[in-house]
Design a protein around this nucleic acid. Structure first.
Lengths: 87, 87
DNA sequence: TTTATATTTCGACAAATATCGAAATATTTT
DNA sequence: AAAATATTTCGATATTTGTCGAAATATAAA
């Protein structure tokens, strides 16, 4: 849970998730959407992977990233419990 | 959105929200649940308040904290959109 | 009005984080 | 095999964050 919230606590990483929602992308394609260096982006992707929010597979010289929703569902569950009105 | 994820990115602050789910508490009562100093806890409560995840009211010499669910609902919404399978 | 209790603010400091350029690794193309 | 492309790893650095003790503020009790 810690790693997930840590990963979500950054605008760029949340934007990456939104991008991946539309479809899989290579690291380079993702990088093109931001004004930051490749090493920095690689680090962001690493944190997202550590949190299991994305998965990656190698395709030739590219690395393709995909959104993983399993962990998001767990967090959704946690938040839903909190937000439920207590009677 | 930034402030909310920042606020949620800490085990103690998430635990505070869970405590407040059960009912309102004073700053002191909350502090008794943790092994950290009062100033530190006050700071955590401040971040939660900045994120509108809690509200506070003064009751005599005490300050009573309550859970606010409005912002949680917004985050829930955001996460739900992400987690929805794209067809 | 003095003393006690509850909470926050103020400085200070150690640990964590985001960022970068350079170098390393892996794959493809020539 | 050499050159080009894609991505990650490695150090280094500036910023942010969590923590504390001491002091400040506010209310209640003696």
């Amino acid at each position: 849970m810690n790693t997930v919230f840590k990963a979500l606590n950054d605008p760029i990483r949340r934007e990456i998730l939104t991008l991946l929602k539309k479809g899989d992308m290579t690291a380079g394609e993702i990088a093109d959407h931001f004004q930051i260096g490749k090493p920095t982006l690689s680090h962001h992707l690493d944190l997202l992977r550590q949190a299991d929010l994305v998965s990656s597979r190698k395709d030739g010289q590219f690395v393709v990233y995909s959104l993983s929703t399993t962990v998001l569902d767990e967090i959704l569950q946690w938040m839903y419990q909190l937000s439920q009105q207590k009677q």
